[in-house]
Design a binder for these strands. Structure first.
Lengths: 226, 226
DNA sequence: GCCTATGGGTGGGGTGCGTCACAATGAGAA
DNA sequence: TTCTCATTGTGACGCACCCCACCCATAGGC
C-alpha cells in the first residue's frame, strides 16, 4: 500500500479533502527506524505525533522498579505520540520499532494552523481520543475480571483483526511480538502466557509460529476470551 | 462555591473569556439528582456531557456476568459523559449519584457551534482527553504492578488531593464511598480492601470513618502506595 | 563448522487475594 | 424504642498466577 492510502486512513487525514490533505502532507517529515531502535523515550519532552506508514511500533512504560508493560502495538495508519502534542508534558511512554518501520511525523507547529482553521480536524481527533479512552477502559475492566488465558485470547483476536490475513486454515496473525512482549501486553508473566498458548495449541485452536500464530478455531478462542 | 466559579474551572469553560462563557451558559440545562439516582446507563444512546456543580457522581461499568467496576468518582468542576458526544456511540458507563448532586448538562447541538467556531475550545477539550488518557494508563500500570494495599493507598491519596480538607490531625477525606465501592474502584474484593484499611488504621496511618477516612500520616501512606 | 545469545517450553513451590461464611455494628423506618 | 437492611469486620480455604530453575531450539556472529 502506498503512503497516500495509508495516511488517508489515519483520523488526522480522514477529516480532510484531497487538496487539504496534500497541503498538510508537505509539513510531514518521514522517519525510518530499523527493528529495535527507539523513537522516543519516557520522560523526554516532545511535541510530535506520528502515523505508522509501514511496519510496527510498540509503546511501553517502565515502572519504578524496572518492570515493563506494553500499552499497545501499532501498525499502518495508526497514530501515536499525540498526547504530548495536545497536552504539553513529557512523554509517558517509550516508542520502539518492532520491525523496520517507516513513520510520518508532524510537529505541534505544523499541526496548529490546521487545528485552529479546520474545525473538522479537531473533531476527528476528539473522536479518535474518545475511542481510545473507551478501548483503554475495556482493557482495564479485562484486567480486573478476566484471567490470563482469557486476556491472551482476547489480545490475539484483537491482533488478528488488525494484522491478520485469511488463509485456508484460518487466520494467520504475524504480530512480531516475542512471548515476553505479549505477556507485557496482557499484564502477565511470560511463563503463564506460554502455558496459555500451549494449552490453546493443544486444543487445536491455534498453531504457534515464530512471532506469529495461526488461529484455527476462531469461535472457540472467542468463547474462551469472554 | 457558586455555579459560575465551579463551571469556570471545567476545561470546557476555562477556554473562554467571560462573555463567551456567559453565552455558552445559556445553553446549559441544570439537572438535580438525589443520592442513588442514575443519570444514564450503559448501553443507552446519549449525546450530552455534564459538569458536576455540587456533589459527587460515580461512573461504573458492569461486566457480562454482572460484576461491577468503578471507572471514577467525580466532584465539582469535573466533566463526564463527553465520550458519547465526540464519538456517537451508546454510553459505555453508568452514571449514578453518590450524594445529592447538581449538574450542568450540555447537548451535542449546543456545543457544536462552539467547537467549530472557537478553536481554543476544541484544543482545551483535546488536552482534557489527553490528560485523562494518561491517567487511565497510569491506573492500568498500577493494576499490573501494584498489590491491593498499594492501590488502596494510592486511591486514598488521589481522593485526598481532590476532596480532602486539612484538619489539625491530618487530611479528612469524605469520599462518600462504601468499602464495596472503594473495592470496585481499585479492582479488588471488598474483604481485601477492608483488611488493607484495617491494617493502615492499625499502623496509625489513618482513621476509618463513615464513608470517609482521616489520613494521619501522609508520608507513610505515600510510601506504601509506590 | 562452533559458540553465544535470544527466545521458547515446562515443572514445582509459595503466596496474594478471591470466595465463602458468619458475626458485629450502625442507620433508617415504623 | 425496636426491627430490618446495609455495611463493616474477620477468619479459613483454595487456587491462579508469579517467581525460580532448568533445558531445548534456533539464529546470527566469527
Amino acid at each position: 500500500m502506498n503512503t497516500e492510502d495509508v495516511l488517508g486512513k489515519a483520523p488526522l487525514f480522514a477529516a480532510l479533502d484531497r487538496e487539504s490533505a496534500a497541503a498538510l502532507r508537505t509539513s510531514i517529515t518521514e522517519v525510518q527506524l530499523s527493528k529495535g531502535q527507539t523513537l522516543f523515550s519516557e520522560g523526554e519532552t516532545g511535541d510530535r505525533l506520528y502515523v505508522v506508514l509501514e511496519g510496527k511500533i510498540k509503546l511501553s512504560r517502565t515502572s519504578t522498579d524496572g518492570r515493563e508493560n506494553l500499552l499497545s502495538v501499532l501498525g499502518p495508519s495508526e497514530m501515536f505520540g499525540e498526547l504530548s502534542l495536545f497536552d504539553p508534558r513529557p512523554r509517558t511512554a517509550t516508542a520502539t520499532a518492532l520491525t523496520d518501520v517507516r513513520l510520518a511525523g508532524l510537529g505541534h507547529d505544523d499541526l496548529r494552523p490546521w487545528l485552529t482553521g479546520r474545525p473538522e480536524v479537531a473533531l476527528h481527533l476528539l473522536r479518535a481520543l474518545a475511542q481510545r479512552l473507551r478501548r483503554t477502559n475495556d482493557v482495564l475492566a479485562d484486567l480486573v475480571f478476566t484471567d490470563v488465558p482469557g486476556r491472551v485470547a482476547k489480545q490475539l483476536l484483537d491482533l488478528a483483526e488488525r494484522f491478520g490475513t485469511k488463509t485456508e486454515e484460518g487466520v494467520r496473525v504475524h504480530h512480531d511480538l516475542t512471548q515476553e512482549e505479549l505477556a507485557q501486553l496482557v499484564g502477565a508473566s511470560r511463563e503463564t502466557v506460554n502455558k496459555a498458548l500451549a494449552d490453546f495449541a493443544q486444543r487445536g485452536w491455534l498453531r504457534i509460529e515464530a512471532k506469529a500464530v495461526t488461529i484455527l478455531d476462531l469461535d472457540r478462542l472467542y468463547n474462551r476470551s469472554r
